[in-house]
Structures are given as C-alpha cells and as structure tokens.
Amino acid sequence: MIKKWYWIGLFLSMNTVAQEPITAVPLYTQAELIELIKKNEHLKRVKDDECQLVKDIEARAETMALPSYQFLYGDMLAYGVCVERNVELGLYYMRQSAEQGLSSALEQLGRYYDVGQLVQADKAMAVVYLREAAAQGNIKAQLRLVNLFNDGHGSPRDYEDAYRWLFHSAVADKKLHKTIEKALAQLAEKMPQSAIRRARLPM
C-alpha cells in the first residue's frame, strides 16, 4: 500500500510541475535596448533571459533592420552568445547598425579598429568611425578620438571639432574629468590659440 501511494504521489507531483506556466520574456523596447547597450549590459541580458528571444532579435536585425537590434545581434554573433559564433557576420551587422548612425556601433567599431580587436588595426578607419560617434556626443568616442590625435593620427583639420566636443562634454566622474583635462591640454599644444578660443565658445 505504501508503494502504491508513493507512485500516486510521484505522478501528481510530476503532473503539477508539467502544468506550471512558462513565463514569456518580453521583447526589449528600442529605448530599453539602447540603454542596455550604453551600459554594456546587452549580452548579459540576453543570457539572463535564457536565450529565449534569439529568433525575435534576428528578425528585428535582419528583416526590420532596426539599428539597435543589428548591434545586439552583431555582438551575439561576434562573441557566440546564444548563437553559433560567426565573427564575419557579426561585424556585418555592427557595420549595418553604424551605417544607420547608432552611436554605440560607431564607437565600438572605432575602438576595434584602434586596438585591432576582431579586425586588423587601422588608425585611419578608427578616426572615421570615432569622429561620427563623437559628433553625436558619445564621450568614449570623443576621448579616444582626442587620444588618437595626440598620438599623431588623423588630420589637424579635425582638432578643433574634437577639442570642442570633448571640452563641452558633461562628466560627473572626477577621475574621468582629470583624464579629459589632461587629453585636452595635450591636444591644445598642437592647436593655434584662435582655434582653442573658438572651440571653447558656448555651443
């Protein structure tokens, strides 16, 4: 009798587990995804959601051509997150996103070309991508661009714009503020005083 009740209990227990509702993960809004990308938490979020949204992400990147989803899918492919790793295809989607003007995609590609990550190092190409991102107010791109100019890359014609963008950026972090101050002082040594005065005028 004990054995009989054991099997009945086990059956009821398994049946209860099987009937528990599966919670669907809601798709990210554009604004939510862009914030995740800015914080570099987008891949972690996909993993935390147990890869449930891969097909939706792929569709929004490939069919709908949404730049934030192109960036996300490109990163997933480049680093093998929830999909089979394909660096070449990942870079393709990153570039698609950058061509549509997504600041984070422009900054990331500029950084990759600067340091030679996933692509061959190419300082000239890094400047092209970083300049576009910097013009949109991306502070990481602004600082990296100024540092590239300080290291002798790029054109002196772009110094004034680069100085202006970084000089007028709002920074709360004291350490970053000091880093920016030092980078601007170094760039100023390469510029005429008239250009520095123009760059410092209110935007």
Rank of each mutant, 00 (worst) to 15 (best):
A105H: 07
A162S: 13
E99D: 15
D114N: 15
Y129M: 05
G74D: 04
H168D: 07
Q136K: 14
W165V: 02
V119I: 12
A124G: 15
G137A: 06
E132P: 00
D158Y: 07
D161I: 02
G101I: 11
C82I: 14
L106N: 06
G80S: 08
V83M: 10
V127I: 13
F149C: 05
G116V: 07
F167T: 00
Q117N: 13
L130V: 06
A105C: 06
R131Y: 05
R111V: 03
L130M: 14
Y112T: 05
L145A: 05
L72S: 11
I139G: 02
G154V: 01
Y92K: 14
V87R: 08
L145T: 09
E160C: 05
Q100V: 02
Y163R: 10
R131F: 10
H168W: 13
Y73P: 14
F167V: 00
G80F: 15
L102V: 00
L91F: 07
Y113S: 03
Q117F: 13
A105S: 15
E160F: 02
E84Y: 15
L91Q: 08
L143W: 01
L106K: 03
K123E: 15
D161S: 03
R131K: 11
N147C: 11
D122R: 01
E107F: 10
G80C: 11
V81C: 00
F71P: 14
G137C: 13
A134N: 08
Q96R: 14
L77H: 01
A135K: 05
S97E: 10
Q108P: 11
V146W: 03
E88Y: 13
V81D: 10
F149E: 03
V127S: 03
S103P: 10
Y112D: 10
L72M: 10
L145W: 04
Q117T: 08
R164C: 06
H168V: 12
L143Q: 04
Q117M: 14
K123Q: 14
E107H: 06
F149L: 05
M94S: 06
Y73M: 13
Y163M: 09
L72P: 15
L91N: 09
S104M: 13
Y113M: 02
R164L: 07
R131G: 04
S104A: 15
Y93E: 13
D151F: 01
F167Q: 00
A126W: 03
